[in-house]
Design a protein around this nucleic acid. Structure first.
Length: 945
DNA sequence: TATCCGACAGGCG
DNA sequence: CGCCTGTCGGATA
């Protein structure tokens, strides 16, 4: 997955900075390894151990002083809710661990782990899972994954199981940083590509020497170590010579003057060892360069080479290693990667399930099996945001498994694969991940060959590498996808770098006879309009500019869907991407699905919104969907919701079973009820807002200020009854207010903040700091509708406020509201509508006047209807009052909603639903059907009129 | 003028 | 420290 160089904006940068503060698995691995290399200090070890897992200095010094150390064991350190550690006399590790396990404090303080060591032996136990570790002290860093929950890392089980990948990443990270320090001229953006290329070559060599791709006696690491022994300054020459050998055919080596010690290395080629790109462009020469190694860098290199690289897992390793080269992402170190289960959520319904069902159907029929194999050989999988190639690697591995089964059944178990690696194509913005993706695929191919055909066969055909460059590094939204991934059988092979700028002449492709299928997949970057940089903004213009004029608020990821659709129109390719949920909610539905439906696409399968966990604790994640599109008119569509699968006739753009109805946001209501306003927006940096204590002090110090203070109510204040206040000054009282020193001070602060803002609205209002930048406030009784509220509540929480209170932009508001409006807003009908067509924050309801209120389909109300609804509203309000001082949050807690309140709502629903169909609806599905039907009717009539 | 969104953020128990 | 649930201001129309 690619995250381009975005975040020009200071807010986003700040977010990134805070993300870096917690330790990631790679940093922890480094710290733990460092700890094992130090001499064992019995008294200090527990604290060093905790520090290695990211505990803050203050936490540790408090533990050290004994303030928070709960241990009842001699030499013990017990951190509440985490770990009980004890160091002990030599040879007593077993007893000490037992003592820790039996310690009453271990239980009362909810320790998750116990750990005992004497500096020679190391034993630990995970008290929740019961897993244990027992090893030599020097080896305990190998088990660091075991302890990751100590750092709050529990969400991604896979990380824990990928100790090797994390360790390798950590070492490479160290080497990379050191090399950049030693060779500052390689840090320029231009040379960085060469550095990345160099790292990819190294990784290949480490893998090759451990898997016998390099012949015995010609080990890369060993050769480098031997030839540069005592002379680290020539390390780069040694490596350069080895690379040169691997780039030279055996027949030419003597003529090229390759040194004899390098002569036994195989010819690898495949561009991997070819001359470096930037240099070639600059001087026309393809001579490759190797960065210089300091003594430390050389020792890092040898250390890395001595790891067991056969354990490399190309599915996830790539995601981690790509982050090594990325200054922006180094802090997060690949933690945005797409896990294998999530990748399969895309690939299974997109193509793998179909292939597997054909395999099953073929049984042992040799002809059918052959057809399937031939079909698979012509399938291209194309990930236009491939990052380090996870999707492609998984697709390749899964398809190889199917092919192996075919060959098994056909009695050809050793058969060479029919699926060229070059059928798994990708585009990636950054050069290093693109390089890693190529490498990951090569490694995956080798591993599959070993698995399905045997090591001998795998080795025999592995080298030299195919030199085709089928993973393109560039901006996917500016490249011509057909040029990069034309269907198989068209006669167009992989095109050279220079051609990517020029779109493929479509006459080059014989689509009629192509026959090969293409499937597009991936997890492209998500970026709201707020966080895009200029280049990304222009990308959107290029992709959507000629299609619609209403696209600027679309998420960046939507551009991949549109390009995929355009690609699909030319070649009949289906596509499926992971995306932010917002492309299937709220205003974006119209912007994206309007054009896609018009182009003849529909949703073939989808995963309903699910939470994408973030490894860092205390950080919110993102809510994702997976959407597969096709213009092939599928007869049924598959809708996945967590574990469940629903087959339906059509999946609507809101990812529910329905027709392709799009609800458009509108500033005009389709019903004839009162106008709903957006709340009053301060843009004040908090200076016009007062907590209760601030308000009390202000009025105590200056009673004259009292008349400028009003209640201030948004979502939080209303739902949780947390009082806040605001300064509210009408223009004609400004002079008086400005004489109050505290208000004067606050006005100045607002003026300063608004002037300094990059937002035009803030600037425009800088000279009127006593006023909110948006202030529709009117007197009279108003209804407040929180902008965001929890999805757990069975009804939208709404309520009345009087005009001593200012409704903030944290809520919507209807001024001078009539009581029946409350009944409608508080109904199940309205909740269902808003839940479906409005956007969400996480999974929580997010209210919008233009999307939820103005579009709400409601039959015309009679006077009798209004009287009935008024009575219902009064009953709801009375029931709420009966439980004073319970907050709205208390009252609408689904576990604890009072019975009388629930009854009042039921009654309200009954009255309203009778207005729709003369009876109660059976369920929410029926409610939504009716609402969408009515919406279509009401908007259709309006359009005609 | 008006408003939708956040590869989100932060407080509470 | 994990769970629960909504701020706030910029970009855009």
């Amino acid at each position: 997955m690619c995250l381009g160089p975005y975040n020009k904006n200071p807010v986003a940068e700040q977010r990134n900075a805070s993300y870096r503060s917690s330790m990631n698995p790679v940093e922890i691995e480094e710290a733990v390894t460092g700890l094992a290399e130090e001499p064992f200090d019995r008294a200090e070890f527990p604290f060093q151990f905790l520090a290695a897992f990211g505990n803050k200095k203050t936490t540790i010094s408090r533990l050290r002083k004994g303030n928070t150390n709960q241990s009842d064991i001699a030499g013990g350190v017990l951190q509440r809710s985490n770990i009980h550690i004890a160091t002990c006399d030599s040879g007593t590790v077993g007893q000490t661990l037992t003592a820790l396990r039996d310690s009453p404090k271990t239980g009362t303080n909810k320790a998750k782990f116990i750990l005992a060591t004497d500096g020679e032996e190391f034993q630990a136990e995970d008290l929740i899972s019961g897993e244990t570790v027992a090893c030599d002290f020097a080896d305990f860093p190998n088990h660091f994954g075991f302890f990751l929950p100590l750092a709050g890392i529990t969400t991604v089980q896979q990380i824990r199981e990928s100790s090797f990948d994390i360790r390798a990443t950590s070492r490479l990270n160290r080497l990379y940083v050191t090399l950049l320090q030693d060779n500052p001229e390689w840090a320029s953006p231009e040379r960085r590509t060469d550095m990345n290329h160099f790292m990819a070559r190294l990784i290949f060599c480490f893998f090759a020497e451990d898997t016998d791709i390099f012949h015995a006696g010609y080990q890369f690491t060993e050769t480098v170590e031997r030839m540069s022994s005592g002379a680290h300054e020539i390390t780069h020459e040694v490596i350069g010579e080895l690379f040169r050998a691997m780039n030279t055919k055996h027949a030419d080596r003597t003529a090229q003057g390759i040194k004899t010690w390098a002569g036994g290395f195989p010819y690898v080629n495949g561009n991997l060892f070819g001359g470096d790109h930037a240099l070639k462009k600059r001087s026309g020469s393809a001579e490759m360069e190797v960065p210089r190694f300091s003594k430390i860098a050389r020792s890092y290199l040898i250390h890395i080479g001595n790891l067991d690289w056969t354990k490399i897992n190309p599915d996830i390793f790539g995601s981690m290693i790509q982050a090594v080269a990325d200054d922006e992402e180094r802090g997060a170190l690949g933690m945005h990667y797409t896990s294998v289960p999530n990748i399969l959520k895309v690939l299974n319904p997109l193509l793998l399930d179909d292939l597997r069902s054909h395999l099953e159907e073929a049984g042992d029929n040799a002809r059918k099996l052959l057809n399937l194999r031939n079909r698979m050989a012509k399938i291209r999988v194309f990930d236009p945001a491939c990052g380090s190639g996870n999707f492609l690697v998984i697709a390749y591995k899964e398809m190889r498994e199917i092919e192996a089964e075919i060959n098994q059944r056909r009695g050809e178990p050793d058969r060479k694969t029919e699926m060229p690696l070059t059928n798994f194509r990708g585009i990636e913005y950054r050069s290093f991940p693109a390089e890693v993706a190529r490498l990951a695929l090569i490694i995956a191919e080798y591993q599959c060959d070993v698995l399905y055909r045997g090591q001998k066969e795998a080795l025999a055909e592995f080298l030299p590498l195919d030199s085709e460059n089928w993973i393109t590094s560039g901006n996917a939204l500016r490249l011509d996808w057909l040029s990069i991934c034309p269907p198989t059988g068209t006669g167009v092979k992989v095109r050279g770098d220079d051609l990517f700028e020029t779109p493929l002449d479509q006459s080059e492709i014989d689509f009629e006879n192509a026959g090969g299928e293409t499937y597009l997949c991936g997890n492209p970057p998500y970026l709201g309009s707020l966080n895009r940089n200029t280049e990304q903004q222009e990308d959107m213009d290029r992709v959507f500019g000629s299609i619609s004029k209403n696209y600027k608020d679309l998420d960046y990821v939507a551009a991949w869907f549109l390009k995929a659709a355009q690609f699909g129109l030319a070649t009949k390719a289906d596509a499926a991407f992971v995306a932010t949920k917002s492309i299937c909610q709220g205003e974006q539905v119209e912007m994206l699905w309007g054009p896609l439906f018009k182009m003849g696409f529909s949703i073939k399968f989808a995963h309903r919104p699910f939470h994408w966990a973030n490894l860092a604790s205390n950080k919110a994640g993102v809510t994702c969907v997976i959407v597969g599109i096709s213009n092939d008119g599928p007869e049924t569509a598959l809708l996945y919701d967590e574990g469940a699968l629903l087959e339906c006739r059509n999946i609507g753009p809101y990812l529910i079973p329905m027709s392709n109805v799009i609800v458009r946001k509108s500033s005009q209501a389709i019903h004839s009820l009162s106008k709903m306003d957006y709340g009053n927006k301060p843009t004040d940096g908090g200076n016009l807002i007062l907590r209760k204590d601030e308000k009390d002090r202000l009025i105590a110090e200056c009673p004259d200020a009292a008349k400028f203070v009003r209640g201030y109510m948004g979502s939080q204040e209303f739902i949780r009854s947390t009082a806040r206040y605001c300064i509210w000054v009408e223009d004609d009282c400004l002079e008086e207010a400005d004489h109050i020193p505290e208000l004067h001070r606050r006005f100045n602060a607002v003026r300063k903040l608004r002037s300094a803002s990059v937002g035009s609205q803030a600037n425009a209002n800088a000279s009127t700091p006593h006023r909110f930048v948006f202030a529709p406030h009117r007197s009279g009784i108003a209804i407040i509708i929180p902008r965001v509220s929890s999805e757990r509540r069975p009804y939208l929480p709404v309520g009345f406020v009087d005009d001593s209170t200012i409704v903030s932009d944290g809520a919507a508001v209807i001024y001078e509201a009539e009581v029946p409006l409350f009944s409608i807003l508080a109904s199940r009908m309205h909740q269902q509508w808003v839940a479906t067509v409005c956007s969400r924050m996480r999974m929580d309801y997010r209210y919008s006047n233009t999307l939820g209120w103005n579009t709400f389909p409601l039959p015309k109300l009679t006077e009798q209807n209004k009287t009935d609804l008024t009575r219902c509203a009064e009953n709801i309000l009375l029931a709420r009052e009966a439980h004073f001082p319970a907050t709205i949050a208390d009252l609408y807690d689904p576990e604890a909603m009072p019975e009388d309140l629930r009854r009042a709502h039921e009654e309200n629903d009954e009255v309203l639903e009778r207005i729709y169909i003369g009876r109660r609806f059976r369920n929410d599905t029926e409610r939504l059907e009716k609402l969408f039907e009515l919406y279509t009717k009401m908007t259709g009539k309006k359009a005609a009129a």
